[in-house]
Write a protein that binds this DNA or RNA. Structure first.
Length: 602
RNA sequence: GCCGAUGUAGCUCAAUGGUAGAGCAAUCGCCUUGUAAGUGAUAGGUUAUGGGUUCGAUUCCCAUCAUCGGCUCCA
C-alpha cells in the first residue's frame, strides 16, 4: 500500500467513499476485459489508489498502448451490460476451487486463511472473512466494497493511463507483473479536471523548465544524477543560500566546512559501512589507506565537536554546513533534481544537554518553519516517526525525545501525523513536507535525533558535577538538499520565481535603435542599485522581446521609447501582463526593491 | 537494480534497408518598431555508443549508456 493511500485512509474515509467503490469496481471491470483478451493470464491484486486504480497481471506478453485502448473500449461494453456486483462469503476450500488456476489468488487465500496478512501482505489483527465478488463474466477474490452494478460507472469518466512493471507484493525478489494504471471519476467533468491537473503538472515539470529557463542540466559525459547548475540556476541558489546563511548567523549557528572524503575507520566507527554501505561509492586508495566519498556530513561534525573538551556552558552548539555528499542511487530511481547522486545538504547538527533538549527542538522547528515560509511554502505538514522495533539507545531517551517532538508539534499547532515505528534505528524524527501550488506534497526538512553517533564516538561534555555526560545530538536538514529544494521551488512557482529569487528581475526593452543608449543608462542605474537587470538590445520588434521575457518569466519588463526618453521614465509591465504605466526610474526602483525586501510572490 | 517504452540539428518532432527533412532557436541582412512571434537568406546531423546481419544499416538484431513511466529503495 502506498504511503499516500494510507495517509488518505487515515485522514478521511476514502475507503467508505463512493469514489473508492467506483475505482475498485472499475478495477474489476478492467481485469475482466484483460482476461478476455488473455484467457491464460493470471491476475494479482487491483486496489483503488489516489486518483484511480490499478490491477496487476501476469501475462504472456508485454502490453502495448494499443492493447490499452482495446481494453478500455471493452470496459465500456461491460459497463453497458450493467451487471450487478454480487458479494458472496466462501470457505477457503471453495475459494481455492474457484481460483484453482490463479496462483496469486491461491497465495492470497492462504494468507487470508491463516489470517495474518491482508491482500497487500501487510499484517492484520483480525482474521478476515473470505469473500468473492461476481460481476458480469468475472469473479474476483475481494473484500469489497463495490458499487451496486457495473452500470454505475460512468463510461466517459474512466481512462486507462499507462502500463508499468510492479513486483508481486512489492517485493523485488518476487516476479515482475504488469500493472495497468487507470483513473476513474464520478463524472466526465471530474475526469477532465484531473487530466487538466496532469497537464498543468507537466507544464511545471522542473526538468522541462530547467531546460527552458536555462537553470540546470545533466550531461551524459559527466554522469547520471550529477547536476550542472547553469548561471541562472546558480544565481537562484546563491540568493537562497545567502538568505539561509544570514538567518543561520542570526540564530546562533556556527558554520563549519568539512572535506569530501574520510578514512574507512571513520565510517566504520560511525556505522555507515554497516548500515549505509549500499549507498556508498567504492573506496579510494591513498598511500595504502582507504578513503570513502562522504554520503553524510555527521561524522565530520562530530570530529569538530570532539576536537576539544566541551562544557555544559558551551551547549547548545549548532554546526551548520552546506555539505556536498555523494550517494549511490540505483539507476532506475534517478529523477531530475529530485533524486540525484551528488547533492548538497543544508545540514546542521545540534548538540545539547538533556535538560536543553525540549527547548532545542522548539527552536529548530520554529526556525525551520520560518525559513520554509520565507520561500513561499505556507502549507506545511509534519510527520513524526517513532521508535522502530530494532533501535539503538535506551528506551528512556527515546521516550523523552518522542515526547519533546510531539509537544513541540502541538505547541506550534502544526498539523502532523504519527508514523509509529517509522523512525530510524538511531532515533525518532520529524519530517516536514510542503504542499505546492498544485497541492502536491514534497518532503523537504528532516529533524532527527541521533542516539547512535554520540555513543559510537563516545561524545561527552562536562556537567556542573564535573563529570562527563552524553550530549543529545540532533541532525537537521532544513531545505533537504539544494537540488531537491530547487526542483520543488521550480515546480511550486512553475518557474515564475518571486522577484527576490528571480535570476533576472527586469528586462529593459528599447523600442527602436535610437532608444538603446537611454535603455543602457537605465540598466546601469538599476544594476547599481542592486537589481538584476538585462538589456534586450537585439534587433527585434518590441513585441518579440516582450514575448521572450514573458517566456523567461522575468518579473518586470521596462519598455522605453520616445515618450519615456522625454520624461526620463520607464513603462512597466509585469509578467502577469499587468501594465503599471509610465514611472520615474527612481519610483520603479523603490517599488521593485520593496518587493524584493518583502519577498513578494507573484 | 527490475519491467516496459524511447534515443534523429540547440529545442520540439518527421522520414527511409540505397549515406536525412520541418518548425522554433542560432548567424548575417532588410525593416526602426508602443505591450506575447515583422521579414529574407545562411549555416547546422558519422541518426546516443559499440558490435552483428547485409552488396549496402540511421532503419533489422545484440550489448552498453542515457532518458521517460512505474516497482523496489530514500535528501
Amino acid at each position: 500500500m502506498t504511503r499516500d493511500l494510507r495517509r488518505m485512509m487515515m485522514a478521511g474515509n476514502y475507503e467508505e467513499s463512493k469514489l473508492y467503490k467506483l475505482r475498485h469496481s472499475a478495477a474489476h471491470v478492467m481485469a475482466q476485459a484483460v482476461l478476455e483478451k488473455f484467457p491464460e493470464g493470471k491476475v494479482a491484486i487491483g486496489p483503488p489508489v489516489e486518483d484511480g486504480f490499478y490491477y496487476d497481471f501476469d501475462l504472456p506478453r508485454p502490453l502495448t498502448p494499443e492493447d490499452l485502448e482495446e481494453v478500455e473500449s471493452r470496459m465500456r461494453e461491460i459497463i453497458k451490460n450493467d451487471s450487478e456486483f454480487v458479494r458472496e462469503k466462501v470457505s477457503a476450500e471453495e475459494a481455492r476451487q474457484i481460483f484453482a488456476d490463479q496462483p496469486y489468488k491461491l497465495e492470497l487465500i492462504q494468507g487470508l486463511e491463516e489470517g495474518d496478512v491482508d491482500e497487500h501482505g501487510n499484517p492484520v489483527e483480525e482474521k478476515p472473512d473470505i469473500t468473492i465478488y461476481k460481476s458480469d463474466a468475472f469473479v474476483d477474490l475481494c473484500r469489497g466494497p463495490h458499487l451496486e452494478s457495473t452500470g454505475k460507472i460512468h463510461p466517459k469518466a474512466i481512462k486507462l493511463m499507462n502500463v508499468a512493471g510492479a513486483y508481486w507484493r512489492g517485493d523485488e525478489h518476487n516476479p515482475m507483473l504488469q500493472r495497468i494504471y487507470g483513473t476513474a471519476w464520478l463524472s466526465p467533468k471530474e475526469l477532465k479536471q484531473y487530466l487538466w491537473r496532469l497537464e498543468e503538472a507537466k507544464k511545471r515539470d522542473h526538468r522541462k523548465l530547467g531546460r527552458e529557463l536555462d537553470l540546470f542540466s545533466v550531461s551524459d559525459d559527466v554522469g547520471a544524477g550529477l547536476i550542472l547548475w547553469h548561471p541562472r540556476g546558480a544565481m537562484i541558489r546563491y540568493i537562497a543560500e545567502r538568505f539561509w546563511e544570514d538567518e543561520h548567523v542570526k540564530h546562533g549557528y556556527d558554520f563549519v566546512y568539512t572535506p569530501h572524503i574520510g578514512k574507512a575507520k571513520l565510517w566504520q566507527t560511525s556505522g555507515h559501512l554497516d548500515f549505509f554501505a549500499e549507498n556508498m561509492y567504492a573506496p579510494i586508495e591513498i598511500e595504502d589507506q582507504q578513503y570513502y566519498l562522504k554520503p553524510m556530513n555527521c561524522p565530520f561534525h562530530v570530529q569538530i565537536y570532539k576536537s576539544d573538551i566541551r562544557s555544559y556552558r558551551d551547549l547548545p552548539m549548532r554546526y551548520a554546513e552546506k555539505g556536498t555528499v555523494y550517494r549511490y542511487e540505483r539507476s532506475g530511481v534517478l529523477h531530475g533534481l529530485m533524486r540525484v547522486r551528488g547533492l548538497t545538504q543544508d545540514d546542521a547538527h545540534h548538540f545539547c544537554a538533556p535538560s536543553q533538549m525540549p527547548k532545542e527542538i522548539d527552536f529548530v522547528l520554529t526556525f525551520s518553519l520560518n525559513i520554509l515560509r520565507a520561500f513561499g511554502f505556507s502549507d506545511i505538514k509534519a510527520y513524526l516517526s517513532t521508535r522502530p522495533e530494532k533501535a539503538a539507545g535506551e528506551l528512556e531517551r527515546w521516550d523523552r525525545a518522542e515526547a519533546a517532538l510531539e509537544d513541540t508539534l502541538k505547541r506550534l499547532a502544526l498539523p502532523y501525523e504519527v508514523d509509529a515505528g517509522g523512525g530510524a534505528f538511531y532515533g525518532p524524527k520529524i519530517d516536514l513536507k510542503v504542499n505546492d501550488a498544485l497541492g502536491r506534497e514534497w518532503q523537504l526538512s528532516t529533524i532527527q535525533f541521533d542516539f547512535n553517533l554520540p555513543d559510537r564516538f563516545d561524545m561527552t561534555y562536562i556537567e556542573e558535577d564535573g563529570q562527563p555526560h552524553r550530549p543529545y545530538m540532533i541532525h537537521r536538514a532544513l531545505l533537504g538538499s539544494m537540488e531537491r529544494f530547487f526542483g520543488t521551488l521550480i515546480e511550486h512557482y512553475g518557474g515564475a520565481f518571486p522577484i527576490w529569487l528571480s535570476p533576472v528581475q527586469a528586462v529593459i526593452i528599447p523600442i527602436a535603435d535610437r532608444h538603446v543608449e537611454y535603455a543602457a543608462n537605465i540598466a546601469d542605474q538599476l544594476k547599481d542599485a542592486g537589481l538584476r537587470v538585462e538589456l534586450d538590445d537585439r534587433n527585434d520588434r518590441m513585441n518579440a522581446k516582450i514575448r521572450d521575457a514573458e517566456k523567461q518569466k522575468v518579473p518586470f519588463m521596462l519598455v522605453v521609447g520616445d515618450r519615456e526618453m522625454e520624461e526620463n521614465a520607464v513603462d512597466i509591465r509585469r509578467r502577469s501582463g499587468e501594465r503599471l504605466g509610465s514611472m520615474m526610474v527612481d519610483d520603479f526602483l523603490a517599488l521593485a526593491l520593496q518587493e524584493v525586501e518583502d519577498k513578494v510572490v507573484g
